[in-house]
Amino acid sequence: MEKYTEFHACKPKKDKTFRVVLKNMHQTTDLKELSNSLADKGHMVINIWNVMQRITNVQLPLFFVDLKAQDNNKEIYKITLLMNTCVQFEAPHIKREIPQCMRCQKYGHTRNYCHNNPHCVKFARNHLTKDCPRKTRDEEVICVNCKEHHPANYRGCIRHKQIEQKNIFLLHNNTDIMLISETNFTNKSYIKIPNFNIYHTNHPDGTAHAGTPVIIRYNIKHYEKEGYKQNIFKLLA
């Protein structure tokens, strides 16, 4: 009998694009011509789209541009004239929201590379939200993350608040390395904090008690040594 393992992955670094925001270009500009103009300046466009006002859907003189990752990507910020128009390139605003997968409803990743079992955002059932047979509102809404009666994407969810508090603590205290004890994690538990690498050990018996993670800022050079494990304890270094 085959055993199905749930997991999620991240987009390979070599496949990631370099995104910029183009300002002051007229919203009716032909996208193909715009891509060709950037290519003439040494920037290969992977994708480009016009931004619309969220409520009225009116086109704005604003574009998102995804470039092929190259050594000269940051040179695009020096471009001030494009297609006879004075323009400005900027880096996009970094989203501070905790990413949540629309497939499994867990935090810390998105659906693009998720291979976890699907869960409905409304009823915690094992199906995608779009395939949910229940289309009406009722009181049986259940969050798959905390089992309370609210949708899984509710920002007041206790699970969301716990992750948010951890992120705020690390950022506000300018933390580089931190050791946490008594996480009570199992092999099915998962945590991800932006800009940090996390190495954790759970209790060898697989139950939800004990456990220790080490949290290290991603830009600090480090490596993980082989762990030491016995039936009664497990070490991480």
Rank of each mutant, 00 (worst) to 15 (best):
E2G: 00
K3Y: 03
T5G: 01
E6S: 02
F7Y: 12
A9S: 10
C10P: 03
K11G: 00
R19S: 05
V21H: 05
V21W: 04
N24K: 07
H26A: 02
T29Y: 02
L34F: 01
N36Q: 10
S37K: 01
K41E: 15
G42Y: 04
H43G: 05
H43S: 07
V45S: 03
V45G: 07
I48T: 12
N50E: 06
V51P: 11
P61E: 05
P61D: 12
L62V: 11
D66G: 06
D66M: 05
K68R: 13
A69C: 14
I76G: 04
I76R: 00
I79H: 05
L81C: 09
M83L: 10
N84H: 05
N84K: 07
T85M: 05
F89R: 02
E90H: 01
H93R: 15
P99C: 03
Q100P: 04
C101A: 04
M102H: 09
M102Q: 11
R103P: 06
Y107M: 13
Y107S: 07
H109T: 12
H109Q: 10
T110N: 09
R111T: 11
H115V: 13
H115I: 15
H119T: 14
C120G: 02
V121D: 04
K122F: 09
R125W: 03
N126A: 09
L128F: 05
L128W: 07
T129P: 00
K130Y: 03
K130N: 06
R134T: 13
T136F: 06
T136Y: 07
D138P: 03
N145T: 12
C146F: 00
C146D: 13
K147D: 14
K147Q: 14
E148G: 08
E148V: 00
H149C: 01
H149D: 10
P151F: 01
A152G: 08
N153L: 01
N153T: 12
R155S: 11
C157I: 10
R159N: 12
K161R: 11
E164F: 04
E164D: 12
K166L: 15
I168V: 14
L171T: 14
D176N: 13
D176W: 08
M178C: 10
S181D: 11
E182C: 05
T183W: 02
T186C: 03
K188S: 11
K188C: 04
P194A: 06
N197E: 15
Y199M: 11
N202H: 02
A208S: 12
A208Y: 07
H209E: 09
A210C: 09
G211I: 08
P213Q: 02
V214K: 06
Y218I: 15
E224S: 10
G227A: 02
K229V: 15
N231R: 15
N231V: 14
I232Q: 14
L236K: 02
A237I: 15
